[in-house]
Amino acid sequence: MELGPKDIEKIAHLARLRIEEGDIPAYADNLTHILDLVEQMNGVDTDGVAPMAHPQDASQRLRPDVVTEENQRDHFQGNAPATEAGLYLVPKVIE
């Protein structure tokens, strides 16, 4: 499967990555190779093989439903560029 410049722009947009125009052919080439590898794996007979959700053969540990965290707002907000009235401020987003 061959990826074109449009595909690269779309993928970069979805991941919110800014890429240089001049780098697009190289990205397209690299990603196409990855897809080629996937295509190659698609050729393997996997009948009877359960899909792997995680490389570790283990299952999720559960924690008891107990509140263990205390309020550390001031501490965390010390790292934030802008806060007001306890809120984190970000550039205005309106749908």
């Binding site: 924690r63 439903d65 107990v66 509140v67 263990t68 965290e69 309020n71 550390q72 707002r73 965390f76 907000q77 009235a85 306890g86 809120l87 984190y88």
Partner: peptide, 27 residues
């Protein structure tokens, strides 16, 4: 209706002061 969040030990109580129940995992 759990007491704590699905992936962290922060409280889920309604109506708290903003961001006082948002721990490192939630952030």
């Amino acid at each position: 209706a759990t007491k704590s969040k699905i992936f962290s030990g922060a409280s889920t109580a309604y109506g708290a002061e903003p961001n006082t129940q948002a721990c490192a995992i939630d952030l």
